[in-house]
């Protein structure tokens, strides 16, 4: 099976030759960047560099996907936020929002740009999707991601205010999330047109570490439903942290699969959701993949599969400094895993 066939089979609920090992979140590696001679701070700003960096992970390690972009600022930038790429340093920093567009409660009725999918780096990411597809010749799937409305709201206004207002003025927050859902839909439609094979929606701001399951169901779920109803490619709903209390709601949102991190008890999730639900997860991409030994990597991957994940998938973005031998240990583990 090619990686593309394997991942397509996973989404179709069909058998695969071996467990799929891929991600819907960023997975560029320092090893890949070094080989290409690219600086991390620059790959976010150039479609060719972005595509080549994304493609380097499957090429170097046999990973079952390539994913663009690598940062979480694309939608916020399209709305009008300024970003910081930390160009001054050689160290690894992911871009962050330098200037928010909503500074107070009164500014929450901000209107969104009509042609938001043509703003900021959305066209650049689309170009990168096209280039990555060309490079991979249909053998490896190309994925992308968008933020969920609540997480995006936390990018364009103070998270502190957003959290308090979701309690004190839920109507105002609801209205904002509804508008942001439309922005997200416009962006993901553009990614679909560019040819992505699957899409992940990252709503990690709404994890049960932060928000009560009650507020999740009331405020977050309706907008996630609205978004997943519009997605035509295979879709994944990603939330990290303590997710056991909301896995049912995550499925209800309408994605083809859910993605959870190492803090989810997969055995319980499997019991709750049944054998057919697609649950992707759930190794710790830092404490296992980056700072663990190859033995720990192998044990962890085997445990994920024993516990019942539908595909081996990281709990968060893969931190670029992953040692190649650990990445290889992960790929070996899925190849050797006997079901």
């Amino acid at each position: 099976m090619t990686a593309k066939e394997r991942v397509a089979s996973v989404f179709a609920g069909e058998k695969t030759d071996r467990p799929a090992c891929f991600s819907g979140l960023g997975n560029v590696t320092t090893a890949g960047l070094e080989k290409l001679g690219y600086k991390f701070a620059e790959v976010h700003l150039d479609s060719r560099q972005m595509a080549e960096a994304a493609v380097s992970t499957p090429k170097l390690f046999g990973f079952d996907c390539a994913v663009v972009p690598f940062d979480l600022c694309v939608e916020a930038e399209a709305i009008g936020c300024e970003i910081n790429t930390y160009a001054h340093t050689e160290d690894l920093f992911y871009p962050t929002i330098k200037e928010k567009v909503i500074h107070s409660e009164d500014e929450m009725d901000l209107s969104m740009p009509a042609d938001v999918a043509e703003k900021g780096r959305v066209p650049l990411v689309c170009e990168a999707i096209g280039l990555a597809k060309e490079e991979l010749k249909g053998e490896v799937p190309v994925g992308s991601y968008v933020l969920g409305p609540f997480t995006l709201a936390g990018q364009i206004m103070e998270l502190n205010d957003l959290l308090k207002l979701s309690f004190k003025k839920p109507d105002k927050v609801e209205a904002l999330l509804d508008k942001l859902a439309d922005v997200i839909i416009a962006v993901l439609k553009r990614y679909e047109k560019a040819g992505i094979d699957y899409l992940t929606v990252r709503e990690m701001g709404a994890t049960s570490d932060v928000l009560s399951p009650r507020i999740f169901k009331k405020l977050i779920l309706p907008n996630l439903k609205k978004i997943f109803a519009e997605i035509t490619v295979p879709s994944v709903n990603h939330i990290c942290g303590k997710t056991n209390p909301i896995v049912g709601a995550m499925v209800e949102a309408g994605a083809d699969a859910i993605s959870v991190d190492q803090r989810n008890e997969i055995i319980k999730t499997r019991e709750e959701l049944g054998p057919d639900a697609l649950v992707f997860g759930n190794y710790d991409p830092f404490n296992v993949l980056v700072s663990g030994t190859p033995e720990l990597v192998e044990q962890t991957i085997n445990k994920c599969l024993d516990d019942g994940v539908s595909a081996v998938w990281p709990g968060c973005d893969i931190w670029p400094t992953v040692p190649p031998r650990n990445f290889e240990a992960m790929m070996d583990a899925v190849r050797n895993y006997a079901r």
Binding site: L163, K164, F167, K168, S208, V210, L211
Partner: peptide, 8 residues
């Protein structure tokens, strides 16, 4: 309580 309550 969750984080919003905590902040308040």
């Amino acid at each position: 309580y969750f984080v919003p309550e905590l902040l308040m």
